[in-house]
Design a protein around this nucleic acid. Structure first.
Lengths: 231, 231
DNA sequence: ACTGCTAACTGGTCTGACCAAGTGGCACGG
DNA sequence: CCGTGCCACTTGGTCAGACCAGTTAGCAGT
């Protein structure tokens, strides 16, 4: 097993966390002391600790001690490494919404054209269910409902590539999408009215099999939400 | 805004990443050169690049260059096997063209809005070069020219997700795209006239920074080719 | 007991050196 | 002519030791 020194130190430290040797809240020994005890240079130790910090295992403050964070934390905001960090980036959120606008417009277009009657019926049922609930839900549940609705549309498009990409996109970038909703709610205190009526417009256009209208409504729906990021 | 040097360098690099200045697949300058140009020590540069790596933005190999990663790549392992076989499947070709129509429309839209002057100039040069050659090329070379032209547009969009998706899409489904061209040539014996003028329209709209026209022209261009697959 | 200074920590950055792993060019031999 | 292998050069990885910059604990003076 050939690894770089800093890498194997990193792994060694992680194992100490998982074994319970280093409990959350405790303090790491200083970089100098660790470099002595491990027989490595301080640069190498810093490299490893820097990675630990980036992955959310420890919290390091200039001048203060380095503290071990709660072990479960990294798992909550890390459905997929790296991308999670992007969830809070407004620029990235904007980009995600741009792609959603494009993707869902196309999906709605093809759904209006090619959905089976059974799919239309299922879509209608899901829409009615969404309308009925509405109020008493958490932000997270709303986000999930929203994605489920849009994913049903994508599936109704009968377009392999669009379905594949939608699936991938919604699962991987759920954090960013959820972040947009959270940010919007923080700013307005509630679900913007537009969204409800826009969902209605999409639903209606697909039901009536009006492809162009469906595309326009779906695109406009996402861009409406996106605009709230700009203010 | 008080930040550590490595942290602000990290942020600066991320911004270059999102702005399209650092495209996926390109190589970072070496740590030594970067430390010179930024007026920082190599340690600090290493710190920042280490974070970038931990967050999945770049891939660094001992002894080799550091490459910017395509952030969609890990998730793009769709029905890869048999994709080459699918290259001849008309239904699949149609789907690929549908997605191209969507993708290139958006790319052209954002390129018209956000391309730098240098990018416009490069795009213009590439367009002129395409016009000059034209005749004496093989089908394969034409397909490559076409994709290079469209890829330049995608890169000029400064839209990270669109760039990533385009890169992967064009490489993975090149066979299908090439297949469409081959099929068209077999049927008509030559490059349809429409394509030449359509490239011209796209080129002109982007140069004039007319975003909506660029989108329409690019979409129509792909759908025109797609229509040749029908009947 | 409170206050405020200071000294001894902590992490952050710098320098310049050397090691180790890829890369590319060039001369040699087929 | 092409392939092959060597070698110099570039890249990232590690090291040592120094100094800067926040943090903190303890001690002195009130």
């Amino acid at each position: 097993m050939d690894k770089s020194l800093s890498e194997s130190l990193l792994q060694q430290l992680k194992e100490s966390f998982f074994s319970g040797e280093l409990l959350p809240g405790t303090e790491l020994v200083s970089q100098r002391r660790m470099s002595e005890s491990k027989g490595l240079s301080r640069s190498t130790v810093r490299e490893a600790i820097g990675q630990l910090e980036a992955e959310g295992y420890v919290e390091v403050r200039h001048g203060g001690k380095t503290r071990v964070k709660n072990l479960l934390e990294p798992y909550f905001n890390m459905p997929i490494e790296g991308v999670s960090a992007l969830g809070d980036n407004v620029d990235f959120q904007r980009q995600v919404m741009d792609v959603r606008a494009m993707l869902e417009g196309e999906a709605a277009f093809y759904a209006a054209t090619r959905a089976t009657d059974a799919q239309l019926q299922a879509l209608d049922a899901e829409y009615q269910r969404m309308q009925k609930r509405g109020q008493g839900e958490t932000t997270l549940e709303k986000a999930k409902d929203d994605l489920r609705f849009h994913m049903m549309i994508a599936e109704s498009s009968h377009h392999l590539l669009i379905i594949c990409f939608s699936q991938l996109f919604y699962t991987r970038f759920f954090n960013a999408i959820y972040g947009v909703l959270t940010r919007t709610l923080q700013k307005y205190g509630r679900y913007p009215d537009g969204i409800r009526s826009q969902h209605g417009a999409i639903h209606q256009a697909i039901m009536a099999r009006e492809a162009e209208n469906a595309r326009t409504a779906a695109t406009e729906h996402i861009l409406y939400t996106r605009r709230h990021l700009d203010e």
